[in-house]
Every structure is written in C-alpha cells, then in structure tokens.
Amino acid sequence: MQDNTKPENQAVSSNIHLRRRGRPKCFDENQALEKAMLLFWQYGYEATSISDLTQSLGITAPSLYGTFGDKVELFKKSLDYYLANEACPIDEIFKQAKTAKIAMELYLFENLKRLIQDYKPTGCMLVVSTMNCSITNQQIQTELLNKRLATKQKIFARIQQGVKQGEIPSMTDIQAMTDFYTTMLQGMTIQARDGATMEQLEHVVIMAMKNWDNFLK
C-alpha cells in the first residue's frame, strides 16, 4: 500500500510529537527552591554564587537558567517560597486575635519559633539576606525593604484597629508603638544570628509586652 503522506506533513507531525513530549525534568522545582532559599537565607544574596546554587540543587547552570531565569529571578522565587512556607502568618494572627495587644504578643512569640529552628538558618530572611549587598544590587535591597515596610504597615493597621475598638486611647502615639515593635522584631533577628537562645529572646518579648501599657499613658 502506498504511503501518500507528504514528507513535510511527516516532519510537522514529528515536531508536534516532540513538543508534546518535551524535555523531562530531572529535579523537583519546589525542592530546588527550598535549597536555594536556605542558601540565600544563610549566606545572603551576594555571597551565594551560581556555583553554590548548582552544587546544592544538583543541577547544571543551563538547567538553572532555563528553569528559574537568572540569579535575581531565582532569589525572588526563593523569597516567595520563604514567605509562603517559612514566614510568620501575620494576616492570620492579626485577624484571629481579639485585641491588638494579644495580636502583637502572639506575633512576637510566633516569630521566635521561626528565628531559631533546628537545621535552618537563624533570623528572618527578609532582614539578613541583603544586609551586605553592594550598590549594584540596590533593586533587590529595595524590594526587600518594601516587603519589610508592608509588614510594618500591617502592624500599624492592627494597632490602629485597637484604637477604633476602644482598646487603645485615641491620643496614643501609635506610630511610636509601631516603630518600637518593628525594631524589636528586627533586633531579635540579629540577636538570633549572634547566638541568642530561645529562652533569652522569650524574655525580650516578655519585656517588650510589659512596655505596651507605657505607650497608653
């Protein structure tokens, strides 16, 4: 029986078949992101090289670039992974807490569980991963700054909600309260990096919450 299929049609069919199959991935992207996140979290953006990443992820540089883009894009995706899987769930805590004071206390203590963990870097990735970046990576520093400021704004909004609910006097300097507790959070990250124990930081949180009423006078 004669095959009437045109050669060009056979080529098109073959190409479609190849595109459908694609190149099989030899690694799990989420696992790779977790490993990249841990490197950036531990050593910072600039100190983590492409060689470090490919070695830890167990992939070649072309595979890394083909899957995640360049180092900047991989860092951003790693940061998103951190926020989704490691960062303290501030929205949930603030929504469920009955008062602003309870919300802040829960948030501080919940952060401690993430600042000091077994087999993971200490501190908050949003704070430590670009501490020593040069001017050439200003864009990344700005992006992290904006994320930290977004968290600070949520703290301000939750305290402001306490004013509206009558828990906090209307004349209270809630910006000063926000600045204080934001500074406490970021300071605990540095303390965790410097080797502070969980017990030591728990005492810091207890003292910080004792200062709550001082703002209301």
Rank of each mutant, 00 (worst) to 15 (best):
M1A: 14
K6I: 15
K6A: 15
K6L: 15
N9A: 15
Q10R: 15
V12R: 14
S13V: 13
N15T: 14
I16M: 11
H17V: 12
H17L: 15
L18A: 15
R19M: 14
R19D: 10
K25W: 08
C26F: 13
F27C: 01
E29H: 04
N30D: 12
A32D: 02
K35S: 10
A36T: 05
A36P: 01
L39N: 00
L39F: 03
F40W: 04
F40E: 01
W41S: 00
W41L: 02
T48V: 04
S49E: 05
I50L: 12
I50A: 10
S51V: 13
D52V: 02
T54S: 04
T54G: 04
Q55K: 11
L57V: 10
L57G: 02
I59R: 01
I59S: 01
A61Q: 14
G66Y: 05
T67Y: 02
T67N: 06
G69H: 03
K71D: 04
V72K: 12
L74D: 01
K77L: 02
K77V: 00
K77R: 14
S78E: 01
S78G: 05
S78T: 00
S78P: 00
D80N: 08
Y82C: 00
L83I: 07
A84K: 00
A87V: 00
C88S: 06
D91C: 02
D91T: 08
I93D: 00
I93L: 06
K95N: 09
K95V: 05
Q96A: 08
Q96M: 05
Q96N: 08
Q96F: 02
A97W: 04
K98T: 14
K98W: 10
K98F: 11
A100N: 04
K101E: 13
A103W: 03
L106S: 11
Y107S: 03
F109G: 00
N111Y: 05
N111C: 07
R114L: 06
R114G: 01
I116Y: 05
I116F: 02
Q117W: 11
Q117P: 08
D118L: 10
D118I: 11
D118N: 09
P121A: 06
M125G: 01
V127Q: 05
V128A: 08
V128Y: 07
T130E: 14
C133Q: 11
S134C: 08
I135P: 06
T136S: 15
Q138L: 15
I140K: 06
Q141V: 12
T142H: 13
L144M: 09
L144Q: 03
L145N: 12
L149V: 12
L149T: 10
A150V: 03
Q153V: 12
I155S: 02
I155M: 10
A157P: 05
A157W: 09
R158C: 10
Q160V: 03
Q161N: 08
G162M: 06
V163A: 09
E167T: 07
E167V: 08
P169L: 09
M171Y: 15
D173S: 09
T182P: 02
T182F: 11
T183C: 11
M184H: 08
M184Q: 13
L185Q: 08
G187Y: 08
M188C: 03
I190C: 07
Q191H: 12
A192R: 02
A192M: 04
R193Q: 13
R193C: 14
D194P: 04
M198K: 09
E199P: 06
L201F: 07
E202K: 13
A208T: 07
A208D: 06
M209Y: 02
K210L: 12
K210Q: 12
K210R: 09
D213L: 08
N214K: 09
N214I: 10
L216I: 04
